[in-house]
């Protein structure tokens, strides 16, 4: 029984990591349709932000909280620069965007290598996140509980922004029907830039959180980018709800299969299941129906 509960948490936790990695992408890819291969590098930038902040603020707990904010800004600004300089020029050429952002990803990786050195760096976890906490009789690492909470917080915050604020309304309007939004006086350009800022910022936050779990190096982002795209594609384009369901479903699936077989096999089987699922439901779990003619 303990093993079942442990694995349930392992799956939820893996799901929350996937969700955090995919959330920003659900905005930029899901809402705007931009295939941003540098999304993983924005996470990497967030992780290095945590490293840099810890150099200044030596208390690990304070530096983590500061990093979450600074990481959001750093990721967001990187995204904004990318949007203004490159992506805005190729909204009608999605395949070119893919290549260009992949190039940007490589440039950012090399930049990280030159600035911070090729070897991995270490970010100390705060004392209050070390060790395990007892939940339903099993020990769960506190870092994982923290990331689970953080990902839920991010989802709630993002959906509130999308649902309740004028900005959110503009974003949704632009996604559903760009031309109509424009004729109604919405500045779609400004909306695009802000959406990209927020999406990339969330990637930065994810990067900061991931320093609690894994390695911090120039290639951190490449470990997550494929999974992040999978979550968005399976979840369905254009809705955060889909990404949330998909992330937790994939996390639980991976953890369950891995427990009864091996990590490599689980990865393969999850891919097979995703391919089969997309055959039946190519639009993903949740899809937006619009009256747009596009």
């Amino acid at each position: 029984m303990d093993a079942v509960i442990s694995q349930l948490f392992a799956g939820l936790s893996l799901g929350s990591v996937l969700l955090l990695a995919a959330l920003g992408l659900a905005l930029t890819f899901g809402q705007m349709g931009v295939i941003n291969m540098a999304h993983g590098e924005f996470m990497m930038a967030g992780a290095y932000t945590a490293f840099a902040v810890q150099k200044v603020v030596s208390d690990a707990g304070v530096s983590l909280l500061v990093s979450l904010v600074v990481g959001f800004v750093v990721g967001g600004l990187l995204g904004l620069i990318l949007e203004i300089t490159l992506i805005s020029r190729m909204y009608s050429r999605p395949l070119d965007t893919l290549l260009v952002t992949f190039g940007v990803a490589l440039v950012l990786q090399q930049l990280a290598r030159d600035v911070f050195g090729a070897p991995n760096v270490d970010v100390r976890a705060p004392q209050w996140l070390s060790g395990a906490v007892q939940i339903l009789g099993v020990g769960v690492p506190k870092t994982r509980v923290f990331i689970l909470a953080l990902s839920i917080l991010c989802v709630v915050a993002l959906s509130l922004v999308l649902k309740l604020t004028p900005l959110g309304r503009r974003i949704r309007a632009t996604v559903q029907n760009r031309d109509l939004a424009e004729t109604s006086g919405v500045s779609t350009r400004a909306t695009d830039r802000l959406t990209f800022f927020i999406g990339s910022g969330v990637a930065g936050v994810a990067g900061v959180a991931l320093t609690l779990l894994g390695s911090i190096g120039p290639t951190l982002g490449t470990n997550y980018i494929v999974d992040a795209f999978l979550v968005v594609v399976v979840g369905g384009i254009g809705q955060l709800k889909g990404a949330v369901i998909a992330a937790f479903a994939l996390g639980l699936l991976q953890a369950t299969i891995e427990y009864s077989s091996t990590a490599s096999l689980a990865k393969v089987l999850v891919f097979v299941i995703i391919v089969a699922f997309l055959q039946v439901r190519p639009q993903g779990i949740v899809s937006v129906r619009t009256r747009s003619l596009a």
């Binding site: 093993a3 392992a10 893996l14 470990n223 990590a263 490599s264 990865k267």
Partner: peptide
Amino acid sequence: EYAPLGHTDFATIVNK
């Protein structure tokens, strides 16, 4: 237990 190269989530392996 074997993890694919570049594997980043060890929750399940550590549970085992």
